[in-house]
């Protein structure tokens, strides 16, 4: 059952992950693996585009928590963009907006990386 998909793109030194479908305790390891590959390659400027994500549970948010400290220690960041209100609410309920850069669209995230 392909209920979750990650596709990767690069724009300059920024690695963009498009996530699609349902991100839960079953599919979170797929996202974890993709971010781990980037980190292993020393790629610390990561943008995750949520526009095609239909569902997220805390297991999905846990993936970002697992990497953020290491990535920021390497002068990078994970920025999150294009969330629909249903997805954003889950991040908001857990206090993520205070700790993570959640922006409207990809361009906002790219601008923030470049400044």
């Amino acid at each position: 059952m392909d209920s979750f998909e990650v596709t990767k793109r690069e724009q300059g030194n920024i690695n963009i992950l498009n996530i699609k479908g349902y991100l839960d305790a079953h599919t979170a390891p797929q996202l974890e693996e993709e971010i781990q590959k980037l980190v292993d390659d020393g790629k610390y400027h990561i943008l995750v585009n949520f526009s095609e994500l239909a569902y997220i549970s805390s297991a999905g948010l846990g993936v970002f928590m697992g990497f953020i400290e290491n990535i920021r220690n390497n002068n990078g960041d994970i920025k999150l963009s294009n969330m629909n209100p249903k997805i954003y609410r889950v991040f908001d309920l857990l206090g993520f907006p205070e700790l993570y850069d959640i922006v409207e669209n990809e361009q906002d995230a790219i601008d923030k990386f470049n400044n």
Partner: peptide, 11 residues
């Protein structure tokens, strides 16, 4: 503290 897990019950 960036701890993984433990979020589910809060939600």
């Amino acid at each position: 503290q960036m701890k993984v897990g433990g979020l589910g019950i809060h939600l």
